[in-house]
Design a protein around this nucleic acid. Structure first.
Length: 907
DNA sequence: CGATTGCATGGCT
DNA sequence: TAGCCATGCAATC
């Protein structure tokens, strides 16, 4: 690699011996020699020693080979070389600067080393996913595979032993054969490092497949060891090391020992999860960092998974099969340390799980990954399961009910009663709980990891903030509320949680890659994003305020003393001479006026303010744009595009109206149209309406199929109708309130226009809304529209105010035959109409449109018409709404008003 | 009527 | 495509 090998943690450095080693190595690899690989020896080689990076073995004479095998090689030949250290635990001398003994010790977090024997006492030496993948790399020698199989077989059925333990061929229990087998796999990465050779994926892959795997193994061994100490990820490697001759002397630079290679290997393994096992990372992270936490496992497991699974009868009764990567334990050193404490127990990471909203919710049920549950938890045959005693990282014991539910011929495992624990740990959706086991006690240990900013992007800001704001370890320490303090229902620390954002709130965020369901739908997200972008773009400094510029991470933000105001939404375009312009719509006449592109407009703007084009500074002046032009322009409008619902200008108007009238609040409201009640955030109600069964009386099931079956009459008093009415009423009241507020603002200006244009406008509005006429018909026969029936029947709804103030006109005319599902969905993109919220929106929009029309100057306002006719969908909806709002004869013919039927496009 | 329990649904892998 | 599992929700307490 081009990057320098990480510094060796030990004090060992390259020595003469090392150089000799290199020389020997190179000579041995390039010159046929019969001499012992040991440069200090002149005997004839006869036996194999440690493995070289080249893939070959160091060929030693009998004497040297014996020393190597006895673990005294270093003592014999490197006794005076640098790099000797003492185990921090037992004091045993260990040579740390030599490839021969490299796997005989591990580096400690706090500095110093520990011999393998001691390391094994304190750290997980088994079931480390990290090693396995590498170990089981595709190129893994068959013999090792066999060993693994063998080992696995031996372990199978031995209780809740994770399949990953299979590789514990390195365990003391491993047969001597295994051990020797493993022993032959000496690290050779060092060699390479010494010789300045760097890894390259291609070379590794092509030249030394086997070496590669072994390299991994070796690298893992070291990493593992380190991991054991630092990251808590210990693996068989460690045990393997213990099997290898200890403290054999050889000179190897500390750097070699440096994990550079191993880390690369790890990196690879990490990346393996991404599918690139062999791709060596050019710049491996420095050793002894946590950079590879987790990913390490990923790589490993993925590989292990595949290999073990494929080649191995991992299928023990417990069903310990491959775990999804997201459940791979990714313990950090701190976590492991915390879990292990000072005990001598070995921590065996089992799995982890990011808490879903459900998991973290008050329900107190933590869904366990099936595989994990079956692999690591006691087998249960009854749904009731059994109580499981789990200890948290602080030593507190919790008792959960480990049980399952039948689910589709399968099982769904859950831990019940986790709320107290979750709360105690102050965990929220998006945080991660880890499960490990203390060996040999077998005690389950539950740790946790707060969501951090480092978490994938799928963590929302909130989560990130929270995660960051809470110390991983500190939390648990801070709140030591014992189990006993938790009330039975487990709702402790409610206030604490409330202090943060509620889980509910987080619902739409957090949740790893897994919870797509909790994510905002793509389109919604885009819309939302655009909406906010729009908002940003429309922000204007409050009058008389000069924003201060604040630079945050390279980005400059305008900071206002007072809340900024929303500017007038405009449409940017390029005029026929190539000049950037923006089109803005007059408040009063709705005509579109062209302004310089760089003009910032107040939230309210009218022709009279058109100082850029005095000729068109009056509403009476015709609009520049032709209908076609406008039509062309509008769709390209960012605002329109932003809203998937608003392919039609109706939305545009609505949005403009909203922006004008209520600023950000409205904007936000637009994004979540309808106070959430009827228009749940996209993150909510991910399950539209599960479980409809025969006999179900829910509002959905009770409804006939779309457009079919008997319709509810307006006078119907069934539960459904009453419910619908009640909800509708509530929503309308809210809506009405808002509208009235807006109305009050614009009342004055509208009044004028109305008095002069009301009459001519009515037909136009009616027609448009009523008849879904084609755009052309709209513009052509607005006053002569034959479709006035609704209006006529309505009596005198010609007064917009009236219509509006009485949003109530809708009352009693609700089409109860709408598709209830729509009510739930109310997807902004659902153009098919239906849904209570839709009705509300439509009603409001209709009103707004009417207002627009009524307030227009009465002539064939191209812009207005164009806008309204540009979107057939919106048109139809509006039409439907309109009819619904004006149709009195609901009982009879069931106004198509809000029904799906009615929403059929007329065009 | 709220909380809990058990399970069905359906998005997603 | 089968299975997982997050979640909703009816039934029950």
């Amino acid at each position: 690699m081009s990057s320098p090998p990480p510094p060796l943690p030990t004090s060992t450095t390259a020595t003469t011996a090392n150089n000799n080693y290199n020389a020997s190595c190179s000579s041995s690899s390039t010159v046929l020699s019969i001499k012992c690989f040991n440069s200090d020896c002149t005997d004839v080689k006869s036996r194999k020693g440690w493995r070289l990076r080249s893939g070959d073995f160091a060929e030693l004479c009998d004497r040297c080979a014996s020393a190597y095998e006895e673990g005294s090689f270093c003592e014999a030949f490197h006794s005076r070389a640098s790099g000797w250290r003492c185990c921090e635990s037992c004091g045993k001398r260990v040579h740390c600067g030599c490839i021969v003994s490299i796997q005989a010790f591990t580096l400690l977090d706090a500095g110093g080393i520990a011999c393998l024997a001691c390391a094994r006492k304190s750290f997980v030496l088994t079931s480390n996913p990290a090693w396995s993948p590498l170990f089981y790399h595709a190129s893994f020698p068959e013999r090792l595979k066999d060993l693994s199989v063998k080992s696995w077989s031996q372990l199978a059925g031995s209780g809740p032993v994770p399949w990953r333990q299979a590789p514990s061929l390195f365990n003391p229990s491993a047969t001597p054969a295994m051990q020797s087998e493993l022993q032959t796999r000496m690290p050779y990465e060092v060699d390479r490092l010494n010789t300045g050779e760097t890894f390259s994926a291609p070379s590794l892959e092509k030249r030394k497949v086997e070496d590669f795997s072994e390299k991994f193994i070796n690298g893992n061994l070291r990493i593992r060891l380190r991991d054991i100490v630092e990251n808590g990820n210990a693996g068989i490697i460690g045990e393997e090391q213990s099997q290898t001759p200890s403290s054999l002397m050889e000179d190897a630079s500390a750097q070699q020992f440096g994990i550079s290679i191993p880390y690369k290997s790890l990196s690879e393994s990490n990346s393996q999860i991404e599918g690139s096992v062999n791709a060596l990372q050019p710049a491996p992270p420095p050793p002894f960092t946590k950079h590879f936490h987790g990913s390490l496992h990923n790589g490993v497991d993925s590989s292990v998974d595949g290999h073990i699974r494929n080649g191995k009868p991992r299928t023990d009764a417990r069903g310990r099969s491959q775990l999804l990567p997201r459940y791979w334990p990714r313990f950090t050193d701190g976590e492991l340390h915390q879990i292990s404490g000072n005990s001598n127990s070995v921590i065996k990471p089992l799995f982890e799980k990011m808490l879903s909203a459900s998991d973290a919710g008050r329900i107190g049920r933590l869904v366990l990954p099936k595989k994990c549950a079956e692999a690591y938890f006691p087998p249960i045959s009854q749904p009731e399961g059994l109580p499981l005693r789990v200890q948290d990282s602080t030593g507190k014991e919790w008792i959960f009910q480990f049980r399952f539910w039948p689910n589709n011929n399968s099982r769904m495992y859950v831990l019940e009663g986790v709320t107290p624990c979750i709360q105690n740990m102050q965990l929220q959706a998006g945080d991660t709980v880890t499960f490990s086991r203390l060996e040999p006690e077998g005690k389950l240990v539950m740790g946790f990891r707060k969501a951090t900013s480092a978490t994938p992007s799928d963590q929302d800001n909130e989560t990130s903030q929270i995660g960051n704001g809470v110390s991983t370890k500190g939390d648990a320490e801070l709140d030591h509320s014992p189990w006993s303090k938790v009330d039975k229902s487990g709702y402790i620390a409610k206030e604490v949680l409330e202090g943060k954002s509620s889980i509910r709130k987080r619902k739409s965020s957090t949740l790893g890659s897994k919870s797509k369901r909790l994510r905002i739908e793509k389109e919604d997200m885009i819309e939302l994003k655009l909406t906010w972008e729009e908002a940003q773009g429309l922000l204007r400094p409050p009058p008389d305020h000069v924003p201060s510029i604040v630079a945050i991470e390279g980005f400059e933000f305008e900071e206002y003393e007072d809340a900024p105001v929303l500017g007038k939404p405009t449409i940017f375009a390029t005029d026929n001479v190539g000049q950037k312009v923006q089109w803005v719509q007059c408040e009063d006449c709705l005509k579109w006026r062209k302004l310089p592109a760089n003009t910032l407009l107040p939230s309210k703007w009218a022709c009279s303010s058109n100082t850029w084009d005095p000729e068109r500074s009056s509403c009476s002046v015709a609009q520049e744009l032709t209908a076609e032009q406008l039509e062309y322009l509008i769709p390209s409008c960012k605002l329109v595009v932003a809203s998937k619902r608003s392919k039609d200008a109706r939305k545009e108007i609505d949005r403009v109206e909203a922006l004008e009238g209520e600023g950000l609040d409205t904007l936000a409201n637009l994004a979540i149209l309808g106070e959430g009640e009827a228009f749940p955030a996209s993150s909510q109600a991910t399950t539209k309406h599960p479980r409809h069964r025969p006999g179900c009386s829910c509002i959905v099931c009770i409804q006939p199929p779309s457009g079919k079956g008997p319709k509810h009459k307006q006078t119907c008093t069934c539960t459904v109708c009453q419910t619908v009415k009640r909800r509708f009423k509530t929503l309308m009241m809210k809506r009405e309130k808002k509208q009235s507020e807006k109305e009050a603002e614009t009342k004055q200006s509208e009044k004028e226009a109305e008095t002069t244009r009301k009459k001519p406008q009515e037909p136009s509005a009616e027609k448009l809304l009523d008849d879904e006429p084609s755009p052309s018909s709209n513009t052509g026969s607005e006053s002569g529209s034959p479709n006035k029936k609704k209006t006529v029947s309505e009596g005198s709804d010609d007064d917009p105010k009236r219509m509006k103030s009485s949003t109530s006109p809708f009352k009693g005319q609700i089409d109860l035959n709408i598709q209830p599902e729509r009510e739930d969905e109310l997807s902004p993109g659902s153009d098919s109409g239906g849904g209570m919220m839709r009705m509300l929106q439509d009603a409001t929009e209709t009103y707004l449109r009417m207002q627009r029309f009524l307030s227009s100057d009465g002539d064939n306002n191209p812009s207005g018409n164009q806008m309204l006719s540009s979107g057939g969908t919106g048109e139809k909806i509006s039409d439907a709404t309109m009819r619904g709002s004006s149709h009195q004869d609901a009982d009879k013919d069931h106004p198509s008003a809000f029904s799906m039927n009615a929403s059929a496009p007329a065009t």
